[in-house]
């Protein structure tokens, strides 16, 4: 149990820059070092964690914790993965709001903000390949973008709508509707 906690605490601590960056660390920890799961099982797990809502790293932790120690194990891995960022961000939040108005900090952040916009924009192109975008479905991301950006529709509804549409589309394709 303690081993589960320390290993997932370490995974939470060294995940910098989002979910996909942490796959190598998870792989070396849970497959190579600890042999908690097989490599093939991890691949399936990555697919499932990607297709489920929520935070990728947490989802993987929940599965492995559950598999090894049941619900208690899942609780331990969830807490362990979330704890490092919680502590670090809270510490920064407590201090940052005080020196946010410092002119030098302001200058640094003026340079950083456009870069952050690029960080959000870059996965659009990278993930476009993984989502198998083609001429037949390229209108889906475009419509989703316009709904959110121009009409101000909440992304939550866009996701719900896409899921329901996919379900109906499947039923029609199989001739059930």
């Amino acid at each position: 149990m303690w081993e589960l906690f320390t290993n997932f605490f370490r995974i939470g601590l060294f995940t910098i820059g989002g979910g996909y960056a942490m796959i190598p660390l998870i792989e070396s920890t849970v497959v190579d070092e600890k042999r908690w799961i097989e490599r093939e099982e991890l691949l399936d797990l990555i697919a499932v964690a990607q297709s489920c809502p929520g935070i990728f790293a947490i989802n993987i932790g929940i599965f492995i914790g559950y598999k090894l120690r049941g619900v208690k194990g899942a609780l331990v891995t969830t807490l362990a993965t979330a704890l490092p960022s919680f502590i670090i961000i809270l510490t920064i939040a407590l201090c940052f709001n005080q020196f946010r108005d410092n002119p030098y900090v302001e200058k640094i952040f003026r340079g950083i903000r456009p870069a952050v916009v690029a960080l959000i924009a870059a996965p659009v192109f990278k993930m476009g390949k993984m989502a198998q975008i083609s001429w037949t479905n390229v209108w889906i991301p475009i419509v989703a973008t316009l709904l959110i950006w121009l009409l101000g529709v909440s992304p939550i509804y866009v996701i719900l709508l896409a899921g329901i549409s996919g379900y109906i589309y499947g039923q029609v394709r199989e001739g059930k509707l």
Partner: peptide
């Protein structure tokens, strides 16, 4: 097959 392209739209937005 519908969720994944919609997610790309979310990122762009």
């Amino acid at each position: 097959s519908w969720l994944r392209p919609a997610v790309i739209g979310l990122l762009a937005a």
